[in-house]
Design a protein around this nucleic acid. Structure first.
Lengths: 350, 350
DNA sequence: ATGAAAGCGCTAACAT
DNA sequence: ATGTTAGCGCTTTCAT
């Protein structure tokens, strides 16, 4: 292997412009105390030589690494990739996060970390030592994993907690799960539904209970009974089927169901089919997440869109701000989801 | 911003083990000339202190950067992400490439580059200077972009060209497009089809013509006429619709169609519906790529699976080998696709 | 088989 | 406003 050295370095630029390294450095980093004329001259040399700073060298001298690490749950992410069922969480993270990074000369590095591992800290520590990122983005369920949160706090590295309400350290960015669930519930109530079932997600995710809270608060506000209308799942399709079966086999079954994610909604759909219930005339269905699959089902599902891309973009912005010692103004930044209407919701049957 | 320094460095390890920096370095890099006892002692200190080398520092001193850059087409990738239609090319790249990288302490960095840009070289050059990766993975259509290929060659950086037959430099890794198309065609012939239409993809991708070649060779081998059976598209759904309309409105329309990708197959499906053709009893359909969507259509599509994950994994291996001056044994490494049977192919109508 | 010294490209700290 | 010096953590010489 021929050792590859940087072809054009700060030295070349300095020589070409006839200034010191430091001045070039100041221009690169947009620091004050450089006269416009000087700045222009240096910039001209930079452009002429096509100079780009080496992030390794920048990092070495104690400045930024221009690297942001996005932590995703290993098991779940790999399972989604292998299943090839269209879950596009990582893609949306890249869409929002990577593009925002690129705007500011940063790069986003995806890292998979195992939540169910006693050695998360060791794993994380290795990743941080090796990459030395300027910030870390936590996604659920990591966002509320105390081991991870505490470790990052100790490391004094800025980190954003996506989908967390963030009691404690780190910068929380919520997707307003409660509000979204409330919105979905209210939407169904407006269509005349009174018996609205809710399938909760895995308790390992805090957002599961927030979504349930949203449903509960809307039901309560409308003075509707919740008896026999709450079932619990774990985000898998199978658990959605089981929950749907439970809800629909009761004495006074729901005329509408909200599932806490798309996979569970798919389970619902299958059970409805099996029971000869037509969607949406016999049963209305709303799912959470709005991953690609829901537009290909029969019928296409009305769903709460999780603004993952926007959220990732905001997360990157918050990290860059934290780098500059800027403290976020709002306590919890929220990027709101929206309801995407398709064909799985109808008026309540009479 | 508090400057974050490495907490435990090679110095700490050296001190702890009572050896020189050099010896520690040798152990880290598995170099010869270290007595087993010594190696063990150093390793013990490394484990004890939880030491992990900083890639920035490693890179600085002229060794590997442990970074591999995967180049994807910007426009197309972003469009796919935004469309949220389940195209999971990037996910599969990550699945194969990232995991393989992780096995060897490498990291995979996704980079978007605009093919239709006169300044690709400048763009690429900036990315290389900044990241200083040990190798680059090119995906179509970059794999056959002479500007990119020539530039990387000049830079003397190992690069793999996915989906290329690689005349010239770089390490080609084919997905055997021709063989796959032949396989699909032969599969239909075995089902009794004699009029098999083919919808070609965008000529910007070399693989488009290889897929067409595969169909052609199978048709020729079976002594079947190809008159009025070849239509061209550009990988978009709309182009698939247009092509299907053309093929199916002829005097002697096909009883089966192979579309060069899933999106165009979706277009076919819509046209068939519109024309009152039942799939698979009136018309059989095979698509290419096997992205998530094709299992959710009515009926689910029989498709050629592109082994993107495996290919990415092989690509990473080849780059790591090239780092060690190992030259690949085969001229073109091929990872073969397979036919995934679903419900869109039936016997030829009588 | 091990160690010491030099240097990678850049920035922080300290001059001037 | 600009330049000089030192040093980041590591690997490559080059000794021993």
């Amino acid at each position: 292997m021929a050792r590859r050295r940087q072809s054009v370095t700060i030295k070349h630029v300095a020589a070409d412009a006839g200034v010191s390294l430091q001045t070039v450095s100041r221009v690169i980093n947009n620091e004050p105390n450089v006269r416009p004329a000087m700045k222009e001259r240096v910039q001209a040399s930079i452009d002429k030589l096509g100079y780009v700073p080496s992030i390794a060298a920048q990092r070495m001298s104690g400045s930024k690494s221009y690297l942001i690490l996005a932590l995703n749950d290993r098991e779940r992410t790999i399972a989604d990739w292998r299943a090839r069922e269209g879950t596009d969480w990582v893609d949306q993270m890249l869409l929002g996060g990577m593009l925002k990074c690129a705007e500011h000369g940063y790069r986003l590095l995806i890292e998979l970390v195992d939540t169910h591992n006693d050695h998360v800290e060791r794993e994380l520590s290795a990743a941080l030592a090796s990459v030395q990122p300027d910030g870390v983005i936590l996604t659920p369920p990591h966002s509320d994993n105390p081991l991870i949160v505490n470790f990052l706090t100790k490391q004094r590295i800025p980190f954003v907690r996506i989908g967390s309400r963030g009691n404690g350290t780190g910068i929380p960015v919520s997707m307003d799960d409660e509000g979204s669930a409330r919105m979905a519930t209210e939407f169904l109530i407006a269509k005349g539904h009174g018996r609205i079932g809710f399938i909760a997600g895995s308790p390992e995710y805090n957002l599961s209970s927030w979504r349930t809270d949203g449903w509960r608060s809307a039901m309560r506000a409308a003075n509707l009974s919740m008896d026999g209308l709450l079932a619990s799942g774990d985000f898998t399709r199978a658990s959605g089927e089981a929950a749907a079966r439970l809800l629909l086999s009761g004495d006074n079954p729901p005329t509408a169901i909200i599932a806490s994610n798309d996979q569970m909604a798919l389970g619902c759909l299958a059970v409805a089919d099996e029971m000869g219930l037509n969607i949406p005339s016999d049963l209305s269905l709303i799912s959470f997440d709005n991953t690609p699959t829901v537009r290909f089902t029969q019928p296409a599902l009305t769903a709460i869109d999780q603004p993952v891309a926007d959220t990732a973009s905001v997360a990157v912005e918050l990290i860059m701000a934290a780098q500059k010692d800027e403290v976020p103004t709002e306590r919890v930044k929220a990027v709101r989801g929206r309801l995407v209407e398709r064909d799985s919701v109808g008026p309540a049957p009479s």
